[in-house]
Design a binder for these strands. Structure first.
Lengths: 231, 231
DNA sequence: AACGAATGGATTGTCGACATTCCACAGTCG
DNA sequence: CGACTGTGGAATGTCGACAATCCATTCGTT
């Protein structure tokens, strides 16, 4: 923490982001992850190190490490000496993902109500979702929805829960990208959230938990069979 | 799947284990993990790739990948260009670990009681624990305890939960190894489990959940401050 | 004496080449 | 014709060397 006193009094340009050295493996991992989460790389697609290395103009080492990162994310699986591929998504896995997410969010609700944290920040996300729904902007609604649940987990003030939730949410991202989205009821999705915040604000544990459970569970029921990709 | 019919009718020697090729990175990761979980490598210890490579007589590549595996296990953390070290264990992290474990096991109990799975297998583990307690064998008791909880999670029939629980339990292993074990009440630990199974067998959801919650929570209360290792 | 630049050592990051393994397809012997 | 054996390609697994980066320490400069 070098004190500002010792530095020349140069006015700091406010909006120049710090130039940071991003290792190649991270760049590669980010790009591959984005491709998987957007649905561009479908489950079952083989990932060949040499091909990716040539394509991205780097050596195999960072590719290998990037793929291992994605493996930790649960997005890629390796079969020794045979190949790596985007992890197939079975109906069972989709169901398990959502059921675990429900448990995480219920845990967050419990912890929030046991603490004295304010839940006002959640209302802002509700407004964003409402605006996105009014504009019929599906992508914005999804983003706002994630922001809402992210904020909910953050309020629980539990680093391990946050890390686990983030990891799980990667797959939810992927699932939502692959699902043939029925953009029918944007308003309904947006409308589901404010009652949750109301229950939290009213410190009504049972109602908050019931609402959160129902909320995550209904998402699960949206046709999981449509994205199965096995073999 | 070559059928046995097509092979020469040689009597298969029954007790020759299949020779399997274990990649170096896995061997390295297993050894390092064992060292960490046994407390030999204490939190905060630096892991230098070149030193480990020379010591284990392999190149840096498998060492790097092994360390990344341990990073996925949550046992090691990396600071770019600076070093890797065994992740320090803070009191907060210990607390969070146990609270998440409680949530996992409660989820398992819920699922078991929603299914029609038999919980008889759990009684066998209870017997093993009882025997270990009678013999004042602390290590055996810990192993049997893990086997019990592992079996409990297995009964929930939820692959993602199982994977998450296993990953979490790695850290519990580490915590227990570092804790100055008070071997006072082996019998009490062993005696805590049968009531849980009884409640499960009786399909008493509330009692089972209450017992499991209390069980994991009491473990948390055993002096977490003794193993803090920060900086 | 205090500040900032430069140097050196240690560690990770990346690279290209070689070794190992597996699978599939052919080939050969009965 | 059928089953075992051999061979080749393709992929991962491993290696040693070099580059990039960070940190602490030293060295000049004012």
């Amino acid at each position: 923490m070098s004190s500002a006193k010792t530095m020349l009094a140069q006015p700091m340009p406010p909006d120049i982001a710090p130039i940071q050295n991003v290792p190649l493996r991270v760049q590669v991992a980010d790009r591959l992850r984005a491709a998987i989460l957007s649905g561009g790389l479908r489950p079952g697609t083989g990932l060949v190190e040499t091909a990716l290395a040539e394509q991205m103009n780097v050596s195999r080492a960072p590719i290998r490490e990037a793929i291992q990162i994605l493996e930790n994310d649960g997005l890629v699986e390796t079969i020794a000496y045979k190949g790596k591929r985007v992890k197939p998504l079975t109906a069972r896995e989709v169901s398990e993902t959502y059921s675990l997410r429900e448990v995480y969010e219920v845990m967050a609700v419990r912890r929030i109500l046991e603490s004295d944290a304010s839940v006002d920040v959640l209302y802002a996300h509700c407004d964003t979702m409402r605006a996105a729904a009014d504009a019929q902007d599906f992508a914005a609604l999804v983003a706002a929805d994630e922001a809402f649940h992210h904020a909910l987990i953050l309020l629980a003030d539990h680093d391990l829960l946050l890390a686990s939730w983030k990891n799980l949410y990667l797959r939810i991202h992927q699932i939502m990208a692959l699902r043939n989205r029925d953009e029918s009821n944007l308003a309904e999705v947006a409308g589901n959230h404010p009652p949750i915040v109301d229950a939290l604000a009213a410190r009504d544990t049972d109602r908050a938990i019931a609402l959160i459970s129902e909320h995550t569970r209904t998402l699960d029921e949206v046709d999981p069979a449509s994205i199965v990709d096995t073999q």
